[in-house]
Nucleic acid binder design. Structure first.
Lengths: 186, 186
DNA sequence: CGACAGTGGCTAACGTCATTAGCCTCTCGG
DNA sequence: CCGAGAGGCTAATGACGTTAGCCACTGTCG
């Protein structure tokens, strides 16, 4: 159990710092090794390979989103909860755009639990809308699509015009709420 | 002007086939060279480097989206136009998930014109809603976020539950329409 | 008709990465 | 005090991207 300078968690910490500062494409094992002051192959004692490191990073980001989301929903309900959730989500992505871009969407067994937790929080945020069964699932999917789409585009700098992004996001929030309130078929 | 077996466009064709079949991560210059029956360095006679090839691929995908979107909006207006646009967008992404994932969101000068065209089509699709100036811009942003978010998540296989995706997408469409119809502040 | 230029392909060579194999050395539990 | 294993290291390999420099073919212009 030699000097535990490094550990899987510590490796992920360094990886996150690299992602934040230089973007997800800059996440390489040699870069992490450099930060950790260690030779590249040493990392394999803590992480299976680069692909797994990416999954771990993604899992960490999802964990942070769980925190942001649950804190937003805590003690609120209905429109208020939904707005807080969407605002918190967007604010996280805007604060850590590279980190957000490092999220892996494709379902991975390693992050399934955290993902389910996120879905659970979204379901909770929608509880007051009285959606049952499948209707709630559809609603969560739309909420996810709206939040994720906006976050991705904002993180990528895809919204170039001068218009205030806060206002755009307020409209998005309004869309989701209005759509849920009037959720018949179309 | 030796045997013009290859050209920038032909290189992009091969690249697209690779993306479709093996995903965007599999897009490497050697893979393209293999398909083209040519040594890797020969590609540099047609394309500046891998980064540029990716941009060209992305531009081609955006061009296809322009076609899909404009055909959807042609001769329709209001809810009908919006629904056709959203359905067409989703259907393209579902038909070519890897290709859709190869889209680069970060604004690039090379694809700026095509991107503007897309925004123009979305604006046209929203024309009947009578939005003016900034309001139209905010609406386009939300529409983009909704369509892109749903497309990305569906392409990544992020919607895992058994619920019918068509229904989820119908709800998304409903949200956008309901939100636009009632677009005051919130 | 024949030289010429440039287009497009090729080989050789490098540098960067990921990844594997195999070694060495602390450190800690007995 | 010893033995094991955790954790670090060097060496080696193989994919790629990229650059440099060479060569053949082709179409054009004297």
């Amino acid at each position: 159990m030699a000097r535990a300078a490094l550990s899987p968690d510590a490796v992920v910490d360094h990886a996150l710092r690299i992602v934040d500062e230089e973007g997800p494409e800059a996440l390489t094992l040699s870069a992490v090794a450099g930060r950790a002051g260690v030779a590249t192959p040493s990392l394999y004692k803590h992480v299976r390979n680069l692909a797994e490191l990416r999954v771990l990073v993604s899992g960490r980001v999802m964990g942070e989103l769980v925190e942001v989301a649950s804190e937003a929903v805590l003690g609120r309900s209905g429109d208020e909860a939904l707005r807080a959730l969407m605002d918190g989500w967007r604010s996280y992505a805007a604060r850590h755009p590279h980190r957000y871009s490092a999220l892996i969407q494709a379902p991975r067994p390693e992050t399934a639990e955290t993902g389910d937790r996120l879905v659970g929080i979204m379901l909770a945020a929608l509880r007051a809308y009285g959606l049952e069964g499948s209707a709630a699932i559809h609603a969560v999917r739309c909420l996810r699509a709206a939040m994720h789409g906006f976050a991705v585009l904002e993180a990528a700098g895809a919204f170039q015009l001068a218009e205030d992004l806060d206002e755009s996001h307020a409209l998005l929030t309004h869309m989701v709420m209005a759509g849920l309130r009037t959720a018949r078929e179309s």
